[in-house]
Simulated scan of single mutants.
Amino acid sequence: MRDLLFLAHRAPFPPDRGDKIRSYHLLRHLAQRWRVHLAAFIEGEDETVVREGLAPFTAGVALVRRTKGRVRAALEAIATGRPVSLAAFDSPALQRAVDDAIAAQDITTAFVFSSQMAHYVDAFSGPIVMDFVDMDSAKFAAYADTARGPMRWMMRREARLLLAHDAGVARRAEASLFVSEAEAALFRSRAVGARIHAVENGIDTDRYDPAIPAENAPHPLIVFTGQMDYRPNIDAVAAFAQNVLPVIRIGHPGAHFAIVGREPAPAVRALAAQDGVIVTGEVPDVRPWLAAADVVVAPLTLARGVQNKVLEAMAMARPVVASPQAAEGIDHDGTIRVAEARGQARAVLDLLADPDTAAALGKAARAQVIARYGWDARLAPLDALMEPAP
């Protein structure tokens, strides 16, 4: 069994948010064929819990606690001409851990999860497989379109510098991965000559089981799940609560909108003052909230790649109303309702008015996920990509 260096900007345990779910399943898959040495950042997690969770899949683990704030990262980035995304994850301690692993182990290949980590293997001479997941430079370009003043300049700068960085990394890598073919195609148009592939996310349909007991919550219940300090999620729930929920409550005065996710930003917490809005903060498990939902919504206007929140709701056999942006990249075969902002209230109202149709839609969505999105099937193409070109 050969030795693999696996780098991640967040330790892949616990798998409790979109990027960590993907990195966790990638790590598990690779550990079947490689002896994996992991180097990653942790933030608020308990280090002992993280190490215990990763132990079955790793031969060695180096964890560095990331404490650098956004302001410091921005100042360092401007001073050095780098993207803020790279400065934010720059750490001499992690570089030492990477160098020590390469020196002590017979590392033949590096797997890098997220472009913020690519510079740690600048001196590594072996093949590199790069998982960009999403095209983050496009996300910052979209932010710039709605920003003003200095922030508009910063977002444009970030989009430009990050794209140049990522294109250079991709041209060096044996393979560059994206979570959907749409993301891969967009990056191919910007990084000519790179070897770019789509390796999609999956879903654990045994864990996301509709039979899980539901949360005791008011009905009708509309649910959104996500990391609630993440700007696309913040914007999505704010717009839905302010513009869509009031229309729904005309027809269903008792309807509630539950925003389920950790670290709600002040703008999200403030929504709890609105009639019908529930802001849970961190919960032990989102599945009971999904099980309780009459409808799950994903009204994101800025979304990259495949939205795990949509796959999870589908696996739980919930009827889903998603924006076109949130549905992009998901092979749902008509088993979710896709609606622009102006049509989301109507789509939710139609499902609430016809529980039989809503239940049938949810059942079809789960069947689609089982058929299309098992992790083993989604990650099978990775095995060939991990082999260096002859």
Rank of each mutant, 00 (worst) to 15 (best):
F89Y: 15
W153E: 13
P127M: 11
P92A: 11
H119Q: 15
D131R: 08
A159C: 01
R66W: 12
F57M: 13
T146D: 15
V98D: 00
A74T: 05
T146W: 12
A138I: 10
F124T: 07
T146Q: 13
E52Q: 15
I102N: 02
P56R: 12
Y120G: 04
L94H: 02
I107C: 12
A59K: 14
G81F: 02
A123M: 09
Y143T: 06
I107F: 09
F132K: 00
V129S: 11
A59P: 08
V50Y: 00
D131M: 04
F89T: 09
D145F: 05
L94Y: 05
T80H: 15
M117N: 02
M135V: 10
F113Y: 05
A144H: 09
D100V: 02
P127T: 13
L75A: 13
A103C: 08
F57D: 13
K139R: 08
M135P: 04
R66F: 07
I107A: 14
G81T: 10
I78D: 01
M135N: 04
L86A: 08
D136K: 09
G60A: 14
V129H: 14
S115L: 09
G149M: 11
V129A: 14
L75S: 00
I107D: 07
L63A: 11
A62Y: 05
E158R: 05
Y120V: 00
S91D: 14
A88P: 04
S85T: 12
P83W: 15
F111C: 05
I107Y: 13
D134A: 09
V61G: 06
L86Y: 02
T146F: 12
V121A: 02
S125W: 00
R148I: 08
L86F: 04
A103R: 13
Y143Q: 11
D145W: 01
E52N: 15
M117F: 08
